[in-house]
Every structure is written in C-alpha cells, then in structure tokens.
C-alpha cells in the first residue's frame, strides 16, 4: 500500500465566528497518497483556497486535524510549522510568487539557502530544477523579465527544490493563457510521473481539470464528489 501524505479529518473553517460567520470549509475529510496528482475543483468561493491553506499549515482549521506524512501539523508551534513547511511542503500561488529583486536561479536557490545547503550542491540542484521546467536559458532573468507562464514554472521549480512530500498549488494557472496553462500542467504531470512528486492543485479551468488523475469537487465548503479519472 502507498504511503499516506495528506490525512485531513473533520476539517472545518469558519471565518468571523463572532460577527457574520462564514463557513468556508465544513467537515471535510481528505486522504491523499504518495504519487497522486489531484485537482481540487469548484466554483469561486467554494473553499478551495481555504482548504489548501489549512493543508499547507498556512491557516489553522477551526476544527479538525491535518496530518502531513504522519505529522499532526495542526498541533505545531508557529516556528516549528515554518520549519516543517520549509522541508516538507512546496507552494505555488496564483501569481507574484517570486522575489522580484532576485533572479530565477536565486529565487529557486533561496529555499535551499534557508536549509543551509552548501553552495556547490545548491547550484547544481538549482540548474537541474530550472532545466526540468524548461528554463535553462532564463536562469539569470529576474521575474520582471519573465512571462507569467515562465514565472509560474520558476515557482514550481522552487517548490520542488526542497524535495517536499507534496506540492500545493492554488490556482497556478489562473493568470495564464491557455497555452502556458497547458504547458505548466504538462510539466507538473511529468514531474509527478518521473519524480513521484505528489501534487494537489486547485482550479476551475476545465482544460486543467482534464489533466488530473483524481478530482475532488468542493461546493459550499463541502466535498461533493471525489473521483478517479484518466487524464486526457
């Protein structure tokens, strides 16, 4: 049996509990195993971001527990959690993921530097990663000199850098044209297949959903369906 990466139990999130409560996520169970390639779909406001943030330890659930690779992250102190994220979770956000003053190479290397990886080893890894996302010739470009799609690919390379257990991507293609979106998804799918990287990404783009092997659908903060599919 494959290893469990995400195990979320009875997770709920209520915003503004004292004034006008918003039940963004309600009693959700999610179980994801190593090597899965999962899309979290649903209309805008259905709770995708909120759920992803809680699974990545960026936000605390009002109720429920989240285990990542067997560690109950909902119990960790703030500093431990930051450290846990550094070593175990890769993030790709919707846009402006990168530090604008650093080059692509430096952005990817930043995470490794936070982990105190020695310079030569770091440089090698950064180059390999940027090559993998097809940006070998852009290593010295700053984010402002890259297209949106290229920036997102650098963000994926950065998320990969620390060899995380999982990469969480919140609408990574939302600001991309369809060609760049397809390209990014192809790279993610390739990394998933070749490197066994587990991906959980949210989207409401049909063309992106098609690429997933499992689709969890959220409606009004609740899981409506959770199905396997053959990517096309």
């Amino acid at each position: 049996m494959a290893k469990t990466i995400i195990d979320a139990h009875n997770v709920s999130k209520t915003f503004n509990p004292k004034t006008i409560p918003v039940h963004a996520v309600q009693d959700v169970h999610v179980h994801i195993e190593e090597g899965e390639f999962v899309a979290l779909v649903g209309p805008s406001g259905s709770g995708k971001s909120t759920l992803l943030n809680m699974m990545g330890g960026l936000d605390e659930p009002t109720e429920g527990t989240v285990f990542i690779d067997g560690v109950e992250i909902t119990k960790l102190s703030e500093n431990k959690l930051i450290d846990f994220r550094l070593h175990n979770i890769g993030f790709v956000f919707q846009s402006f993921n990168l530090i604008p003053v650093l080059t692509a190479k430096e952005n990817v290397g930043f995470v490794l530097q936070l982990q105190n990886m020695p310079k030569t080893e770091r440089e090698k890894r950064v180059l390999a990663l940027l090559e993998e996302v097809g940006l070998k010739d852009k290593i010295n470009s700053r984010p402002g000199e890259l297209s949106g799609g290229q920036q997102q690919r650098v963000a994926v390379a950065r998320a990969l850098a620390s060899k995380p257990k999982i990469i969480l991507a919140d609408e990574p293609t939302a600001n991309l044209d369809s060609k760049s979106a397809a390209n990014l998804l192809d790279i993610m799918a390739k990394l998933n297949k070749e490197e066994k990287i587990t991906f959980l990404f949210s989207t409401h783009d049909q063309r992106v959903i098609r690429k997933a092997r499992r689709v969890i659908t959220l409606v009004d903060g609740k899981i409506e369906s959770d199905v396997e599919q053959t990517p096309s």
Partner: peptide
C-alpha cells in the same frame, strides 16, 4: 510568500 515557503 517568504513565510509560507519556510522563512522564519
């Protein structure tokens, strides 16, 4: 973002 990706 920096805090999210693991910067103390």
């Amino acid at each position: 973002i920096l805090i999210a990706i693991g910067m103390k």
